[in-house]
């Protein structure tokens, strides 16, 4: 139990008459980059929000880093919300101030280095940034935290190729430097699938398949093949 980053037991969450999570049971070991994969509406974002204590499940048990989700645990998690935007009246500098004053374990010098690496100008205003640039800024706010768990919900959504490459580079660098478990959900699987140490495939609020990525590769083929086989009907349109 101690070396599990996340444990979910029979977790359910209903929105109206749609089950976003439907008896989800999951164990994610700590360390490494974990892909949370599945078609739209499979429950990835709801799972992440329950881990952050934003959404309360209707039933089931969740343990994140050994404790119940909630604001106390969030001090140890860097979270990039789904479809997130940044405060449009901020500049890059003000966003870093926000991180320094409100987030524990926020390493400002690391954030400055990352901003430099990702070609962000400190005086640049968020209002008027391209989506890719804004996404880079938001990712910096996550990567600059020295925390044992990082949860990134669709960090590549609607982002140009160059920003995507820069984000992947920064993510890999940060995973090299610190002992962090990274949970990452994405649609851009062909760009990222080689990144995963561990993969979880979700469908309709349940875990369809999970395991060490290399074992899955030797057993079933590439992550994309697995997606195609598991979610044929959902993926063909994408």
């Amino acid at each position: 139990m101690t070396n599990m980053a996340v444990t979910c037991t029979d977790v359910s969450k209903r929105y109206g008459n749609r089950m976003a999570l439907n008896g989800l049971t999951l164990e994610i070991p700590s360390g490494g980059i974990v892909g949370i994969l599945g078609p739209n509406g499979s429950g990835k974002s709801t799972l992440f929000r329950t881990l952050m204590g934003i959404t309360r499940p209707d039933s089931g048990n969740i343990s994140v880093l050994g404790s119940v989700p909630g604001w106390e645990t969030n001090a140890k998690i860097a979270y990039l919300p789904d479809r997130a935007r940044w405060y449009a009246d901020h500049t890059v500098r003000k966003a870093l101030d926000w991180g320094s004053s409100l987030l524990p374990n926020f390493d400002r010098s690391r954030a400055l280095a990352l901003a430099h690496e990702m070609n962000l100008d400190l005086g640049q205003s968020v209002n008027g940034m391209s989506r890719g640039t804004e996404a880079r800024l938001m990712l910096i706010l996550c990567l600059a935290r020295q925390v044992p768990l990082m949860i990134l919900d669709e960090p590549f959504f609607g982002i140009d190729l160059i920003s995507r490459e820069k984000i992947i580079d920064a993510l890999v660098a940060s995973a090299t430097e610190q002992e962090t478990t990274v949970l990452l959900s994405t649609h851009e699987i062909s760009d990222t699938e080689s990144l995963f140490d561990y993969a979880v495939f979700l469908r309709a609020g349940r875990v369809e398949r999970q395991g060490n990525a290399d074992s899955l590769r030797s057993q079933y083929g590439s992550m994309r093949d697995i997606m195609r086989n598991l979610f044929q009907e959902e993926v063909t349109s994408q």
């Binding site: 360390g31 490494g32 980059i33 992947i168 580079d169 890999v172 660098a173 995973a175 090299t176 430097e177 760009d191 990222t192 080689s194 990144l195 995963f196 140490d197 990525a213 290399d214």
Partner: peptide, 15 residues
């Protein structure tokens, strides 16, 4: 280095 190879291959540093 581990970092360079992981970045270049887009592979997990652990691997």
């Amino acid at each position: 280095s581990v970092r360079e190879l992981a970045q270049g291959l887009r592979a997990a540093p652990n691997t």
